[in-house]
Each structure stands twice: as structure tokens, then as C-alpha cells.
């Protein structure tokens, strides 16, 4: 308080305050950048998983079991047995007879 009221040595107080604020700013920035990097990295990994799942589903390389497809119209409905394809760890699915 004394230093604050005094006309001498005020730059030291200011400097210390500034350094503290600067450190806080850097800490905030670093935390946010790290979080953003992690999010970006996880998005990239998800993207790779999505591409692999999409490839697997489109090329019918991995079956995830037999499913029933129901076709409904105003005149009735029929059921068709198909084989579903995709990766077990992905929700992407395709199917064919």
C-alpha cells in the first residue's frame, strides 16, 4: 500500500503486477491451446476411424451380422434378409443381400 501511494518505486509494483498478469495470461493461453490441440487431435483420430469404417462399409469387407430389412407400403409389408457391413467400433453401416 505504501508503495502504491509512494511516488517512488512504482514501476517495480507495476512490473510485478504486470508479470503476474502476464503469467496468468500465458497460463490461460497455454491451457486453452493445449485443450484445442487435444480436441483437434481427437477429431483427427475420429476422422481416420470414420474413413476406415466408411471404407469397410462401402467395400463390404467386414460383416457385422445378418439383419432384417422391412419394406412397407400402403398395400402391406415384406421382410428381406440382408448382411450388414461396417466396423464394430463404428456406427456406420451398410447392407446388401
Amino acid at each position: 500500500m505504501k508503495k502504491l501511494l509512494s511516488s517512488r518505486g512504482e514501476t517495480i509494483v507495476e512490473t510485478l503486477t504486470s508479470i503476474a498478469l502476464l503469467a496468468l495470461a500465458m497460463a490461460i493461453l497455454a491451457t486453452m491451446l493445449t485443450a484445442a490441440y487435444r480436441l483437434d487431435k481427437s477429431a483427427e483420430e475420429e476422422e481416420e476411424r470414420l474413413s476406415a469404417a466408411l471404407r469397410s462399409a462401402e467395400l463390404f469387407t467386414n460383416t457385422v451380422g445378418s439383419k432384417n430389412i422391412t419394406i412397407t407400403s400402403d398395400s402391406g409389408s415384406v421382410s428381406v434378409g440382408v448382411e450388414a457391413y461396417g466396423e464394430p467400433n463404428s456406427s456406420l453401416r451398410t447392407y446388401k443381400k
Binding site: 514501476t11 507495476e14 512490473t15 508479470i19 498478469l21 495470461a25 490461460i28 493461453l29
Partner: peptide, 25 residues
């Protein structure tokens, strides 16, 4: 000497930059 105002401004800039990076991610 060093002004606290600049430090506060820098703090705000850093916060905005960090928020922008997070929002983008």
C-alpha cells in the same frame, strides 16, 4: 515504466486468442 494496463490488455488478448482456438476445435 511497465504499465499494468498493458498487462491487462495482454491478458484479454490471450483470453480471446485461447477462446478462439478452443471454439475452432
Amino acid at each position: 515504466g511497465a504499465s499494468t494496463v498493458f498487462a491487462i490488455i495482454l491478458l484479454l488478448i490471450c483470453s480471446f486468442a485461447g477462446s478462439a482456438a478452443l471454439a475452432s476445435a
